[in-house]
Amino acid sequence: MGEYFQSIVDVEIGVHEAADAKSRLTAWLVDREVIEAGLTDCVLGEPGGGHAPGANYAYALGCQRDYVDPPRLWANGMAISVGRQVYWGGDLEAVICPRCARREQMRPREQGRWDTVFNDAIDDWVRGGAGLVECVGCGAQIGLNDWDWGYPWAFGALGVTVWNWDDLADDFVAEIGQVLGGHRLVYSANKL
């Protein structure tokens, strides 16, 4: 069975701005009744809990309020997280350089640079560094959010994760982008 999750990550916001943006976004979501204001034990991986679906949860799905009910599962809420985190979208076969289109194989792991160069860059980024990886094709230093990951991976200081909701509407994701100041967002979905 498993748990289905979707993430929307602001890959441009700085760590220092993320807390204010989280407050602004949470107020917007509560005002539209997409989520409940209080935190409950309704998400995975967030010690402080998450927000249960609100009376207008269907708004996030692009549906009318009376058209859809929230999932009746324990993990069915929304977590809004701040702080540098990695949001993975799936298992990697390869990544592609955005400058020269060189394809870096990630499988088998022992033959690629995943366990070395990419892992080191991710660790650097999480600790506050730039998280750059040199492309062996063109020699350019590429930021982690600029590689083509195949499945969307994101590295950001503000992320929204919903558990076991139907697919989020494109318009809803775009509205979140506007609330966050028009920053670049990365959307991904996967299943545990």
Rank of each mutant, 00 (worst) to 15 (best):
A121V: 03
A174N: 11
A121C: 01
R103V: 06
M78G: 14
S81K: 15
V126W: 00
W125C: 06
W114E: 10
G83C: 00
L158N: 05
W163I: 05
W147T: 03
M78L: 15
R99C: 12
C97T: 07
D124I: 06
A75T: 06
G139K: 09
T161P: 08
Y87M: 04
W147Y: 02
C97D: 05
A157C: 10
N164C: 06
A75E: 12
E93C: 13
E175Q: 15
Y151K: 15
C97N: 12
L158F: 09
L144R: 06
W149Q: 06
A174Q: 15
G129W: 01
V68C: 10
A140F: 13
A140I: 09
R109V: 10
E104T: 09
G129P: 08
G77C: 05
G131C: 11
Q141D: 15
Q141S: 11
N145K: 05
A101I: 03
L168D: 01
Q64E: 14
E93M: 13
R107E: 14
N76G: 13
D115N: 15
G128V: 01
Q141R: 14
F172M: 04
C63Y: 10
D69E: 13
Y67A: 15
F172I: 03
C100N: 00
W165A: 04
A130I: 11
P71K: 08
G89Q: 00
G62N: 00
R102C: 10
A154R: 03
I122Y: 08
A94R: 12
V162G: 13
T116L: 10
C135L: 01
G83E: 02
R107I: 15
L73E: 13
V82T: 13
N76F: 08
W149D: 06
G89I: 03
A154W: 02
D124G: 02
V173Y: 02
D120K: 12
G150C: 03
D166Q: 15
G83M: 01
D123F: 12
A94I: 00
M106V: 08
G150V: 00
I122V: 14
V126D: 00
C63Q: 12
I80G: 05
W88C: 04
A174C: 08
A169V: 08
L158K: 02
W163R: 06
E93K: 11
C100R: 02
E93T: 13
E93F: 12
G131Y: 08
F172A: 00
S81P: 07
W163K: 05
Q141F: 10
D66V: 09
L73Q: 15
I80S: 05
C135A: 08
P71W: 08
L144N: 00
N76P: 02
G159E: 03
V160Q: 04
N145P: 11
D166G: 10
A94M: 07
V173R: 02
D69I: 01
P108Q: 09
P98I: 00
A154T: 01
F118W: 05
D91C: 10
R109Y: 14
D123N: 14
N145D: 01
D148H: 12
G128S: 05
V136F: 13
I142V: 12
R72T: 14
G128Q: 07
C138L: 04
W163D: 09
R99S: 14
G156L: 05
A75P: 09
W149F: 11
V162Q: 08
G77W: 02
A157K: 09
V82W: 02
V68I: 10
G128F: 04
R65H: 11
I122L: 07
D170F: 11
P71G: 03
V136L: 12
P108F: 03
G62M: 02
L61I: 09
V82M: 07
D146S: 08
